[in-house]
């Protein structure tokens, strides 16, 4: 019998200017540290990938800071998924030229869904990650937000995920706006609402908090990968400690 695949543990950096920041409910921002230093620490600690989101580029219609990404990714030899203000095919090409291996797209995809199709056709599905920021609006209902969780779209988050799959994306990164930065645990219902049907990998994000919640979102909600920010930034535990715990619970991880 084949071994089950490795679940990926992915530190997520919200980058604003020269800093990694931590949004709480994506509103208030706290400076956490230096992106080079944090990315380096996570690489050494055995992170499987790094997600790097330029949270200013999307919100203020600024261009992505490619130079910063280049310096952050320089000494790191694991995959970088990069998002924030990706609006054109040339933006993707540029990101790949300075350290990205995949791109995460939210705002521009909502405005122009066919961009996902065009990008997948050129760079392959495996390069295009649909980034959904979801906020609970009722029982079993979530609305997709854009621009770093600030703008409503009126679009149902789960329906949007389905559309993204049809348009050819290769992965879904789903953030719970309500849980992000709270440490209160992943939003189990939201993650299940996507993993229950998604034929592509789903990365759960928002609320990690402790070992048990991570374990739960993998075993119970079937997340293919988990993204964490505050818990790792503030050293509640390290990537390696988390992986050892998961391994002790018979979850396959790369050690």
């Amino acid at each position: 019998m084949a071994m089950a695949k490795n679940v990926r543990i992915i530190p997520l950096l919200h980058v604003k200017g020269p800093n990694v920041v931590k949004p709480v409910h994506t509103e208030a921002l706290r400076i956490v540290g230096n992106p080079e230093e944090l990315a380096g620490r996570y690489y050494e600690d055995g992170a499987d990938e790094i997600i790097y989101l330029d949270i200013v580029a999307s919100l203020y219609q600024r261009n992505f800071d490619f130079e910063l990404l280049k310096s952050v990714s320089r000494d790191i030899f694991i995959p970088f998924t990069v998002g924030g203000g990706i609006r054109t095919i040339q933006d993707i090409r540029n990101a790949l030229r300075v350290g990205a291996d995949k791109v995460a797209i939210n705002t521009h995809a909502v405005k122009n869904p066919d961009f996902l199709k065009e990008a997948s056709k050129i760079f392959g599905s495996q390069c295009i990650v649909l980034f959904i920021e979801a906020k609970k609006v009722g029982a079993g209902k979530w609305e997709a937000y854009t621009d770093g969780g600030r703008e409503k779209t009126g679009i149902d988050a789960v329906e949007w995920a389905k559309r993204g799959v049809d348009l050819g994306v290769g992965e879904i990164l789903i953030t719970s706006i309500d849980r992000d930065g709270t440490g209160a645990g992943y939003e189990s219902e939201l993650v299940s609402a996507v993993t229950s049907w998604a034929p592509i990998p789903v990365i759960a994000h928002g609320g990690a908090g402790n070992f048990q919640t991570v374990e739960g979102v993998i075993l119970k909600d079937k997340a293919d990968a988990v993204a964490l920010s505050s818990s790792l930034h503030y050293k509640n535990f390290s990537t390696e400690e988390l992986k050892r715990h998961l391994y002790s619970k018979k979850i396959n991880v790369r050690l």
Binding site: R8, D48, G170, I200, P201
Partner: peptide
């Protein structure tokens, strides 16, 4: 294949 496609991750 009894897994999701794309195959993404460490193997």
């Amino acid at each position: 294949v009894k897994e999701k496609i794309p195959h993404v991750g460490w193997n």
